[in-house]
Amino acid sequence: MLEIRNLTKVYDDGTVALKNVSFTVAEGEFLIIIGLSGSGKSTLLRCINRLIDPTEGEILWNGVDIVKLEGDDLRKARRKIGMIFQHFNLIKRSSVLNNVLAGRLGYTSSKQSLFGRFSKKDIERAYKSMERLGITDQAKKRADELSGGQQQRVGIARALMQEPELILADEPVASLDPVLAHSILHRLETLNKEDNLTIICSLHYLDLVQKYSTRVIGLSYGEIVYEGSQKDIQAMTDEQFKEIYGEEAIRVGGGLEGDLTQVEGGAA
């Protein structure tokens, strides 16, 4: 479904964020990218929907090279790729409903958008989407009045409005506490399994990686240094771990030891 070939990104200041990265993602995968801050995870995700223009390489999505797309074609490709963010990136002063509806912008004309209008169908869709994430009660509230977990659910609801085939999640739980982190990832897992959505997600915590991923890629200084299945990561050795996280990294609670029973979103 998605094939990335020799992707390289060099920023204007000379920072090499990605070096010749190549991998493929099959439909229905829950691919998790791990790596230190600054290892290129965010850049990689943003290259896929062209929020950042890669310097070199190809991103083949359903046979089309996203890197070469411009204008309307790019926006059409983007609307099939949902994205959720570490800091949620909601329009803080707008209502939850408006934030969720913003996911439909790719399907809405500029004229309508000038007046902030959406079709009735879209509004119905927004309510369905919010219901699915349990935030219908919050629809009229301002986005910044919500708790972190709730805001991230709005973020997911917004992504779902795009009717995406692929969801990019850039450290979606880094600003949340562990309980909420499980709640949010569990929702992504549900989408992955029920809707057969492909998910590419960057994460920090190894226990979460072990629990939710179907496949893992490790990035270090913009290069892929590790690639493995869920089984592989559960059997990950300290050496492999250190290769990704550096020599000084200490593995905290490796394996599936702790209490990782699922927590439903109640607390979120």
């Binding site: 490709a77 983007r78 803080k92 913003a102 902030g116 409005m161």
Partner: peptide
Amino acid sequence: DSGQIEAIQATGANWVQTVMFAVVPQIIP
């Protein structure tokens, strides 16, 4: 907050939509 602009761009919004949804709500108040 450039994150909000990023998020709206990621939905496939065009320039006008991005300004209306991500820039205006931030600078109007």
